[in-house]
């Protein structure tokens, strides 16, 4: 497969600098019936997240007398993109992403306070342009806080990697598909613990270190937007307007 040119005049395809994020918009509390919810628009990604629970655990035999079960369902809408991602329903990819999102939040959600129950995180991708799992994590964090589910810390992340021989932050679709390496990573805000890390492709140990550093910096910017979204949700009366 021929690799397209990923840089033009020292800038990336969409005109961004190497360490620049795509425009991000986060709105908290967009769903009426969910306990908590959030909508994230991250470049061309559109992700909506709803939190239900703590509620009765189904199936009952799966319930734990010590803690709430955290469950996550990530799905992509059939119209989310033009490619094979667009098949509806759970598939191999979405099952994996559901699992890693659940595990990212497993460490911060204080599920021990709600024994015998379950907490559901539903994330639906309405439109995809590379980096949906990170957008999903950003949405889920805001939605969990909006639901009043106790958390030790907020999580924010970003995808970093290597495209066209350069280390870049927040890979877009072309950079993700044709680049050398893509590494989505998420941190807790206060302690900067890595709660989520995946990698496609290859990076040298030095590159990996540099990537983690720049990801930490970029995820601070994401956190600022997440916290602003939560603050704003108390200013608007009659619920947040969702303008997709």
């Amino acid at each position: 497969m021929e690799t397209p040119e990923l840089f033009k005049d020292g800038k990336r395809l969409d005109g961004r600098a190497l360490d620049e994020l795509r425009p991000i918009r986060i709105i908290a509390g967009v769903l009426k019936e969910a306990e908590g919810s959030a909508f994230v628009e991250w470049g061309g990604n559109k992700v909506i997240c709803g939190i239900y629970g703590p509620r009765e655990c189904i199936p009952k035999h799966g319930a734990s007398p010590y803690t709430a079960l955290l469950k996550c369902r990530y799905t992509m809408s059939p119209f989310a993109s033009l490619e094979e991602h667009g098949r509806t329903g759970p598939n191999r990819r979405s099952t994996e992403i559901s699992k890693v999102i659940r595990e990212a939040f497993g460490g911060v959600v204080m599920s021990g306070e709600f024994p015998k129950t379950q907490i559901d995180i539903y994330v639906d991708v309405l439109q995809a342009e590379g980096g949906t799992r990170i957008a999903a994590i950003a949405a889920a964090t805001v939605a969990l806080a909006n639901a009043g589910i106790p958390m030790k810390d907020m999580i924010s992340g970003v995808a970093v990697g290597k495209a066209g021989g350069q280390l870049v932050v927040d890979l877009g679709k072309a950079e993700d598909n044709y680049g050398e390496s893509d590494m989505p990573i998420a941190f807790t805000h206060r302690d900067k613990e890595i709660v989520f890390l995946q990698m496609d492709g290859k990076l040298t140990p030095e590159e990996l270190g540099n990537c983690i550093d720049s990801a930490m910096e970029a995820s601070e910017k994401v956190y600022a937007l997440q916290s602003e979204a939560l603050r704003k949700s108390y200013e608007a009366e009659g619920g947040q307007e969702l303008d997709i």
Partner: peptide, 19 residues
Amino acid sequence: YASVPGMMRDEKFIPLEMA
């Protein structure tokens, strides 16, 4: 530390959302 969003008013913590 806070575990839910809340408001600090006169050194008191008031949770704004809480299950």
